[in-house]
């Protein structure tokens, strides 16, 4: 017991769980009305790191109904946790970000921790920060580096904790995609493809209409990816982290 307690203390000290993000204003790629310049973002807190396999396994011990092979097919597709061997983690993967989890499972995890998934606006707001700048979304070098992820063959991704941004949040780019609370706008668990016009915005020239930064290809890809998902989808390259409104945590 003593050893365990000491160990968890070290982990806690070594891994600040959640980072406070100050309020601000932000122009996401999509969603602004004509004439609108940006949105106000309230202060919130977000996990410094992606949720790991080990953390998710601990959660499943509390929620066996969401375990691999147990979860309802309404809540996750067939590839849920497909990288796990049965209910156990593949060796050496405990610290790696958990992937192949559905939106339902990710959100349930965050709720279990007294939090929620970050909204798309919050996520994009934090992810616009480089090592030195709070909004680097117009910095060509920053955008090019993120785009580099797509030029890297699948499976040859960076090791963990490669990039820590100015807020102290790690690996928002170049590791895995991340779930957001409102990943496809008004999500009703159903097939997102019914929302024809919104999705049409992701195709062809349509993608450029109404977007705030036509050259932010990395953001286009994130919005396209989110648009292709439904809440039960799982992808081998899609993980998550949790967030909480600052008032909620108090």
């Amino acid at each position: 017991m003593w050893i365990l307690a000491a160990l968890s203390l070290v982990i806690a000290a070594d891994r600040p769980v959640r980072v406070a993000i100050p309020a601000g204003r932000f122009a996401p790629l999509f969603g602004l009305d004509t004439g609108q310049r940006d949105f106000a973002v309230s202060a919130f807190a977000i996990d410094a790191r992606l949720v790991s396999n080990a953390e998710f396994a601990a959660f499943l011990r509390a929620r066996p109904d969401l375990g691999k092979g147990r979860i309802s097919s309404a809540l996750a597709d067939e590839c849920y946790l497909s990288h796990w061997e049965g209910a156990t983690l593949p060796p050496g993967s405990s610290a790696a970000p958990v992937v192949s989890v559905s939106w339902f499972a990710a959100q349930a995890y965050c709720e279990w921790r007294g939090a929620r998934l970050p909204s798309t606006l919050e996520w994009e707001y934090v992810a616009a920060a480089s090592e030195t700048d709070r909004d680097a979304s117009r910095d060509p070098a920053f955008v090019a580096r993120i785009l580099g992820w797509y030029s890297r063959p699948t499976g040859k991704d960076l090791p963990g904790e490669s990039h820590r941004n100015v807020y102290g949040v790690y690996d928002l780019h170049q590791r895995v995609w991340e779930w957001t609370l409102d990943f496809n706008g008004a999500f009703n668990t159903a097939d997102n493809r019914q929302d024809g016009d919104k999705i049409a915005g992701m195709f062809c020239g349509g993608g450029a209409i109404g977007s705030a930064r036509r050259e932010d290809y990395a953001a286009f890809m994130r919005y396209a990816l989110r648009g292709s998902l439904s809440a039960r989808s799982t992808l081998a390259s899609l993980g998550f982290r949790c967030a909480a409104s600052t008032t909620e945590t108090r």
Partner: peptide, 21 residues
Amino acid sequence: DLHAVTGPGGGAASTFTAPGH
């Protein structure tokens, strides 16, 4: 989008497919 298709998007919206789908 197949240019041989008559119909909106040439199939683009109907075939928007996430990885593993």
